[in-house]
Simulated scan of single mutants.
Amino acid sequence: MPDWELQRCCDHNQGVFIISVAVFTVVILAVSSSSPPSLWRTVLLTPFKLITVFLHETSHALACKLTCGDVEGIQVHANEGGVTHTRGGIYWLILPAGYLGSSFWGMVFILASTNLLTTRIAAGCFLLALVVVLFVAQNWLLRGLCIGFIIFLAIVWLLQETTTVRILRFVILFIGVMNSLFSVYDIYDDLISRRVHSSDAEKFAEICPCPCNGVGWGVIWGLISFIFLCASIYLALVILS
C-alpha cells in the first residue's frame, strides 16, 4: 500500500475514534446532568451506569483475591451504589482498588477498541468476569445485570461475526469512555465535594500513616484516574497512527 494511502487510512481511523469519543462524552455528560433529571434513569442507559459500579466492585474483589483474601459476595444496588464483602487480603490495597481499578479498566477498554482482535479479547474477558460475578452476586439486581449483559454482548458479538452490523468495537469503546469519565466524576462526587466518613478514601486515611485525610486521598485518586483517561486517549491515537 502506498504511503499516502496508509496515511489516509490512519487519519480516517483516528478521526472515527476521536469523533466516537467526543460523541460518547457529550451523550454521557448530557444524560448525567440534572436537567432533565429523569433522562439518566432511562431503561437504555441505566444498565451501563450500573456496569461502572460492577467494575468498581469487581476491582475490589480482584484486589482481595490477588492479596490472598476471600471474596464473600458482591452487591450492586439500584441507587448506583455497591458493596464487596471480603475477608483477609491487604486492606490498604483493596480500598483504592475500586476507584483506581475502575479507571484502569476504562483505559483498557478504550485501548482494546482500537483493534478488532483486542476488542474480541476484551469482550471475552468481560463476559468471563460477568459469569464469575454471577456466582458470587448477593442480590438479584446484580445477577440480572450480569445475565442481561451476557446476553447483550453475545448478541452484539453474533451480529459482528455474521452480519454487516459491526458495532462490537463501539460498544467496548462506549463502556470504556463511560467508565473512565465516571471514575473521575464519582471520585469527585463521593470523596472530594462531600465528605462521607464511610467512603473508601476515609477508611484508607485511617489506616495509612501518611498525614492525609479522605479528601486529600480523593484528590490523589482523582488525578491518577484523570491521567489514566488522558493516557488512554493519547495511546489509542498512537496505536491508530
Rank of each mutant, 00 (worst) to 15 (best):
T119M: 12
L134D: 03
L117V: 14
L134K: 05
F109G: 02
N139L: 14
N115Y: 12
L130A: 04
C125I: 12
W140D: 02
F109C: 06
T114A: 15
V131P: 02
L111G: 05
M107R: 01
V132I: 10
I147W: 12
L141M: 10
G89L: 08
V108P: 03
F152R: 10
Y91L: 13
L93N: 00
G106V: 10
F149L: 08
W105S: 01
F109A: 11
I110W: 00
V133Y: 10
L111K: 10
V132H: 03
T119S: 11
P96N: 04
V136P: 03
F104N: 00
L117I: 14
W92Y: 13
G89C: 09
L117F: 15
T118E: 05
N139K: 13
L93H: 01
T118W: 15
V108F: 09
N115F: 13
L142A: 06
F109E: 02
S113W: 07
L95Y: 07
L117N: 12
V131W: 14
L134R: 08
G144F: 14
Y91K: 15
C146M: 07
Y91V: 08
I147R: 11
Y99I: 10
R143F: 10
Y91P: 02
L153H: 11
L145R: 08
W105G: 00
A154H: 11
A123M: 12
I94T: 01
L128Y: 08
A112H: 06
L145T: 07
P96E: 02
V131F: 15
G101S: 01
A137G: 14
F135A: 06
I90K: 05
N139V: 12
N115H: 14
S102P: 04
L141I: 11
F149S: 01
S103K: 10
A123V: 06
W105H: 03
G101I: 01
V133M: 11
V108H: 04
S113R: 05
V132K: 05
A97C: 06
F149H: 05
W105D: 00
Q138F: 03
L128G: 03
G106A: 12
G89E: 04
I94F: 03
I90V: 07
L100Y: 09
S103T: 11
I121K: 04
Y91W: 13
L117Y: 14
L128K: 04
L141D: 02
L111Q: 07
G89F: 05
F109L: 13
I110T: 02
W140A: 05
